[in-house]
């Protein structure tokens, strides 16, 4: 009888369902209660930073290069430099890395305006910066006839912001050296002249801004990668890999006056 079947099916489903309901709902409520009882701070949004006291350490800021994206070992040039300094000084060196993947110069400016970040700046002994790559990459989406104008505007804005950033850092910390990484090219072929021109002009402008402040160090990467693209770029085709980062880190250490480290397969 059809009707009997309907009744049995519906009641069976109901009985099973009620047990699942009791379990599931109970779980949901208990998670809610558990969560509300756990102590906690508000998870800051990426722009803000939670900052413990830091003394005499290294502060790294900027974009994914400073984060070390692409490095299989995960340390990036920042880690490389810190290790180099540690082995040279013989004691551990705190590292504070506030770099964010995809960060632009505007965002970095906002980031260092935060009082806690400023505190971090004050108590650093070395500051490493990588920024600007994301700003410039946006030009790829601009229509070719507009590019030249776009580049001029973008560069102007960037120079202004960079000056502000370095100014703020110097205001908070008079002595610590500021190391800034230049941009490299992903396509050095002469046919893509437009690209290399933009990069070169960008790097030069950066260097000029830096030179107007005390204790700054512009570390170029353009030449490092030119003949070594295959070896130095990671699988994502954009960021350096471990070797690439090591090359950058190595140059920084030498610029700081510390001898080169033992790295296998150095060029």
């Amino acid at each position: 009888m059809m009707k009997k079947w309907i009744w049995y099916t519906v009641s069976t489903i109901f009985i099973l369902g009620i047990s699942i309901f009791a379990y599931g709902f109970g779980q949901a409520i208990s998670i809610g209660i558990e969560v509300n009882q756990a102590p906690g701070i508000v998870q800051p949004a990426p722009e803000m930073t939670v900052e413990p006291q830091m003394v005499d350490g290294v502060l790294a800021m900027g974009d994914s290069l400073a984060r070390g994206t692409g490095d299989e070992t995960g340390e990036g040039f920042v880690g490389y430099v810190v290790r180099g300094l540690e082995s040279s000084n013989g004691e551990p060196l705190p590292l504070y890395n506030i770099a964010v993947e995809g960060l632009g110069t505007q965002a970095l400016l906002s980031q260092i305006n935060d009082p806690q970040t400023r505190e971090g700046i004050r108590s650093s002994s070395l500051i490493l910066i990588s920024i600007g790559g994301n700003d410039l990459r946006a030009i790829e989406r601009v229509e070719s006839t507009q590019r030249s104008q776009y580049f001029k505007d973008a560069l102007d804005i960037y120079i202004g912001q960079l000056g502000e950033i370095i100014g703020i850092i110097r205001a908070e910390n008079k002595g610590a050296p500021i190391v800034f990484i230049g941009l490299y090219n992903l396509d050095y072929s002469p046919s893509n002249q437009e690209r290399s021109e933009y990069l070169i002009e960008w790097n030069q402008s950066t260097q000029k801004v830096l030179e107007s402040f005390e204790g700054t160090l512009f570390t170029p990467t353009y030449d490092l990668f030119k003949l070594n693209l295959e070896d130095y770029i990671s699988a994502d085709g954009l960021h350096p890999n471990s070797k690439g980062y090591a090359a950058i880190g190595d140059r920084i250490l030498r610029n700081l006056g510390i001898g080169k480290m033992n790295m296998p397969n150095q060029y």
Partner: peptide
């Protein structure tokens, strides 16, 4: 603001049970 200090993971089937229970 979203406070994620007490987050944890649970398996998908458990999450589904909870969601459907809430649905009921």
């Amino acid at each position: 603001q979203l406070d994620t200090s007490a987050v944890k993971t649970i398996p998908q089937w458990q999450y589904l049970m909870m969601s459907y229970a809430i649905g009921y």
